[in-house]
Design a protein around this nucleic acid. Structure first.
Length: 992
RNA sequence: GCUGAAGUGGUGGAAUUGGUAGACACGCUGGACUUAAAAUCCAGUGAGCAGUAAUGUUCGUGCGGGUUCAAGUCCCGCCUUCAGUACCA
């Protein structure tokens, strides 16, 4: 043994962590290179929106997990890309600007500084050279560029990919649009090549907009009047805005949209190629909502009109006994007979008045009106009454259904309610109580050429017949709608678009970025234009190719610019590609960088982005892939959703006193209450509300604060109040003085304490939030216990994906683990390390932990690997092991989790390089080979005792040894066992 | 309603292919050290019953069944909680 360092040393996390954070920054330890002979690995976190509140301990959970994995992969010899940045456009900074006039960029910059300071304290191995900020013009230049690419593309269903708009124009010029198989607006007129050539330029542009992947159209949008902006469907929760909870109404507006519907099938198919959590895939599949069926055309009797219907059950076409249209359906007013007109109009008016919320709230009420019109059944030619009803939604399918009451419960209920015929077209099925919606095992009856067929066969045959007779065709329908891409906000990416003769024109990519203009006010203008309408310098000079004053607009060479900005998801839909080459000024990323890094190997973030960010990002990636800009069409191979960390709120119980209602107390007796001070009662002094009241009254009587004559006139109830969690310790004791100083209105309150003089608060687990005073700041944890302890503890809380409560008191466990680890190296403040060969027991402990740590990290089971580190350190402490050959590999195993202490001890052992460059230890089976097994001996499956036996024994030798054992004989009491089960190396079970 | 996830000590959780349920921690109890506290260390800690004790024994993974030598784990039927989604034809 020799002391390497005689300096007095105790585990001092503050000193160590500062030292190594500085070292990593100065030495650029985690800088990733774009050219390396090593295999690549790309670990990504969902970048944060830098909010003013800063980070709480719930935020870094995913970052810690990804950082551990990134560090592990470096040890395993990978060239690891582990970047971080900020999704820095967003509503809060804008709302702050509206309130205070402070420019959102300033707020954002300040918040980013706070975030960075907090993140730096936790010791992440980010490559900050690649930082991106979506609100930075150098970044959004490329967001604008992608928008232009989308504008200049159409979706060719024949090649099943996006193509340049010029190929479409060529087709139009040569043969018109009759043979074009494209994803486009439903009401696109047919035209020939001659027609095309005769269209004016504006007419041609209007046609092309119906094909472009980003397009301008009049769409019904979700308008939020309070926020003054349009919201996407996923920004609305329960009918109100996700941010702020303001009401949302439907409104028609001219808006930019993204033709994501073109990618519906590929977005669905792609799910099977990526390793994402099944619930998340399910919710994307649900959102895309593919359903296979047929379009059927119904002629309306005595009229030119036809009704298109989408159905997933064309096999039940002979069961149709009525049709239902959405009240908003275009044809309703045109087909309604004069006798029904009044009733129909009244119904339409009443449904229009009902909000979405109302309609959702009462789905039980059946309502509808007969239009008086009849359609004709395509096969039987029988008349079918046409109704309207609000259970049919205008926004899905064609807004019309063919009702088959025997096979669909809603149709069934509607038919029952209005006394419409319910023909049964299923063999041996009872429909007297409810519809028969099962498909499997069902045989169709009373259906002409479909009778006797199973569901599957009937489906196929029905579609064939429809197509043959021209009554319809097989069709796949998707729930996924095109995404509205305009926002009436200031703090977002401006569009690279100006308007000439009312038609949008793209600004050439050489002139990007188009930078957000300065405005006086961040609110919409008085005449209802978006905030950019306040800008005075917001016009495009096509001659000078620059943004100029609005006063110069002449609509000849100088034109007005787009006033909307892009939505929050624009910048986050491609940022993972930018990290690959974050500083490139000429391309969004170089071909070399894209081909080297390809895609994200591991992506960690919250599941709340399932149908927003994660769907849009997949869409853009597929588009960029089609256009040859990126090498893969899915941007993230594996995704993990980290769970939420909940806060542990603390409550104190305040007594609220008032005079009982309705009793004949003289007004002058108000002093009865006035004299009574505010009282708080310790948690363990009562178990019920009655007891609470008694405790308070007894106390007040005892202290002469309540006149005994008034006792029965006074009512006392308990009110729980949130206390700041930092004022309550792990034994739930409240710091009374601290509480009084925190809530000065209670500084003269009385606290009824337990017998031992303590005041107990009660606890409840809730979401971490400022308003619940249960936010735990990671800075404070780093200060007191250190980043290594924070990292270990966040992992130790439980499985990564799971929601779990935070309890600061638990951190002492991992903190003392770190101190124990330190003590393996230091004895009496001296570093004592032996170079002797370890014993077989020491090797066994080491290789057990190598095996476990490797398996756990590969399975993202970080909580169990922390537990096994504790076991290893406990064992080595018991063995008094200080052998270099054991402790060095142990440090490497622990270093992804607790990098600062590992670096420090690694340096103390004499290494000059960062431990992050050390090779991960390799597990060797030979150290774990056992010669004996402590067999559990069970009787009828119940373990009674254990018996140490050699693993070399044969089955019969084991049986003999077990049966001859005195405890076995005692258990059997002379009886012969019925059966003896021996699983070698595992268990012995004796059946009595 | 539908889809998904989950129910294990006082608490967070462990048990990777059916094989000793409760690892590892927190908390609690007792002890050592200390004038004291903190820190540290040691011991105990699922519940019940019997025993001075060592120990023995019964019950125990949301509930009810089943398969198996053996079930937290597999099957059937329920209950509860959480999350997402919603009249999708």
């Amino acid at each position: 043994m020799h002391p390497l360092n005689t300096k007095m040393m105790q585990y001092n996390h503050q000193e160590i962590e500062k030292k190594w954070q500085k070292f990593w920054a100065e030495n650029q330890t985690f800088k990733a290179s774009n050219s390396s002979h090593l295999p690549k690995y790309y670990v990504l976190d969902m970048f944060p929106y830098p909010s003013g509140a800063g980070l709480h301990v719930g935020h870094p959970l995913g970052y810690i997990a990804s950082d551990i994995y990134a560090r592990y992969k470096r040890h395993k010899g990978f060239n690891v890309l582990h970047p971080q940045g900020y999704d820095s456009f967003g509503l809060p900074a804008e709302q702050y600007a509206i309130q205070t006039g402070q420019h959102p960029s300033k707020t954002t910059e300040e918040n980013i500084k706070t975030y960075r300071r907090q993140l730096d304290k936790i010791g992440f191995s980010f490559d900050w050279d690649r930082e991106v900020q979506t609100s930075n013009p150098e970044y959004y230049k490329w967001t604008q560029w992608i928008f232009i690419q989308l504008f200049n593309s159409w979706y060719n269903k024949n090649t099943d990919k996006a193509e340049d708009i010029s190929t479409l124009i060529t087709i139009f010029e040569n043969e018109g649009n009759v043979n074009v198989n494209a994803v486009c607006d439903t009401e696109t007129p047919e035209f020939s090549c001659e027609d095309w050539k005769q269209f004016s330029e504006k007419e041609q542009q209007q046609i092309l907009l119906k094909y472009r992947l980003s397009y301008l159209s009049d769409t019904e949008v979700n308008w939020c009047p309070v926020l003054g902006t349009v919201l996407a469907n996923d920004e609305i929760v329960n009918g109100v805005s996700e941010r702020g909870g303001y009401p949302v109404i439907r409104k028609k507006m001219t808006q930019w949209s993204m033709r994501i519907s073109a990618y519906a099938q590929r977005l669905l198919d792609g799910l099977s190629t990526i390793d994402w959590p099944q619930p998340l895939k399910d919710s994307q599949a649900n959102w895309i909502g593919r359903s296979q069926g047929a379009m059927v055309e119904f002629k309306i009797q005595n009229s030119e009109f036809k009704i298109q219907v989408f159905t997933t059950r064309p096999d039940t076409i002979f069961g149709v006994s009525f049709m239902t249209l959405a009240p908003e359906h275009q044809l309703v007013l045109q087909i309604t007979t004069p006798e029904q007109k009044v009733a129909v109009e009244a119904y339409i008016e009443s449904t229009a008045k009902r909000s979405e919320r109302d309609r959702m709230a009462d789905i039980k009420t059946i309502s509808g009106v007969f239009t008086g019109a009849f359609a004709e059944h395509p096969f039987t030619k029988k008349p079918i009454p046409i109704w309207i009803g609000d259970y049919v939604l205008a926004g899905y399918g064609t807004g019309a259904v063919m009702a088959v009451p025997c096979g669909d419960q809603r149709d069934y209920d509607f038919a029952k309610h209005f006394g419409i015929e319910i023909p049964n077209i299923f063999e041996n099925e009872d429909i007297s109580e409810a519809a028969h919606a099962d498909k499997e095992g069902t045989v169709i009856a009373n259906s002409d050429f479909l009778s006797g067929l199973s569901y599957k066969k009937a489906l196929q045959k029905a579609i064939e017949a429809l197509e043959e007779k021209g009554y319809g065709y097989g069709k796949i329908n998707y729930r996924l709608r095109d995404a509205v891409f305009s926002r009436q906000r200031y703090w977002g990416e401006p569009f690279p678009v100006y308007y000439k003769d009312g038609m949008p024109q793209m600004i050439d990519k050489n002139h990007l970025p188009i930078v957000l203009p300065e405005v006086e006010k961040y609110l919409p203008t008085e005449d209802g234009k978006p905030p950019l309408g306040n800008a005075e310098v917001w016009a495009w000079d096509t001659k000078k190719s620059s943004v100029v004053s609005n006063l110069l607009i002449d609509n000849e060479t100088i034109f007005p610019l787009e006033l909307n900005t892009m939505p929050g998801w624009a910048g986050s839909s491609w940022y993972f590609n930018r990290y690959m080459d974050a500083k490139n000024a000429n391309e969004f990323a170089s071909k070399e960088a894209l081909n080297y890094w390809k895609e994200v190997d591991l992506y960690i973030g919250g599941s709340e982005h399932a149908t927003g960010h994660l769907l849009y990002a997949r869409f853009w990636q597929k588009f960029l892939f089609d256009k040859g800009f990126v090498p893969v069409d899915e941007f993230a191979k594996k995704l993990i959703n980290q769970g939420m960390i909940l806060g542990e709120s603390a409550f104190v119980f305040k007594a609220t006193t008032f005079v009982k209602n309705g009793c004949d107390i003289d007004k002058s007796n108000d002093h009865v209450i006035e004299k009574i001070p505010t009282v708080f009662v310790s948690r363990n002094l009562f178990t019920s509300d009655n007891e609470f009241e008694t405790v308070v009254k007894e106390y007040l009587l005892d202290k002469k604060l309540l006149n005994p004559n008034f006792v029965d006139l006074v009512l006392i109830t308990k009110t729980p109040l949130h206390s700041d969690v930092s004022l309550v310790n792990s034994s739930n004791e409240l710091d009374i003085e601290g509480f009084k100083n925190w809530r000065t209105e209670f500084k003269d309150s009385i606290f009824i304490t337990e017998e031992d003089g303590t005041f107990k608060a009660s606890r409840e687990v809730e979401k971490m939030s400022k308003s619940k005073y249960n936010v735990v700041n990671p800075d404070e944890i780093c200060e007191e216990y250190g980043a290594d302890a924070l990292r270990l503890f966040e992992m130790f809380l439980g499985p990564l994906e799971q929601t779990k409560p935070w309890k600061t008191s638990g951190i002492s466990g991992v903190y003392s683990f770190l101190k124990k680890l330190w003590k393996l190296f230091y004895k009496e403040d001296l570093l004592l390390i032996s170079d002797e060969n370890p014993t077989s027991e020491e090797f066994k402990t080491l290789h057990k932990i190598i095996k476990k740590a490797t398996e756990d990290i590969e399975n993202f089971s970080f909580n169990t690997s922390v537990a096994s580190f504790m076991i290893a350190v406990n064992e080595l402490t018991a063995l008094q092991c200080n052998k270099r050959l054991i402790l060095e590999p142990l440090l490497i195993l622990i270093s992804p989790y607790a990098p600062h202490i590992a670096e420090e001890l690694w340096r103390q052992l004499g290494h000059q390089n960062s431990i992050s460059t050390a090779e991960f230890p390799i597990f060797e089976e030979k150290y774990l080979i056992e010669s004996t097994k402590n067999y559990p001996i069970s009787f009828n499956g119940k373990m009674r005792f254990t018996l140490e036996l050699s693993l070399d024994l044969s089955l019969s030798e084991i049986e003999k040894a077990v049966l001859n054992h005195e405890k076995t004989m005692a258990q059997l009491q002379g009886k012969l066992p019925k059966k003896v089960i021996i699983v070698p190396g595992k268990i012995v079970n004796i059946v009595e």
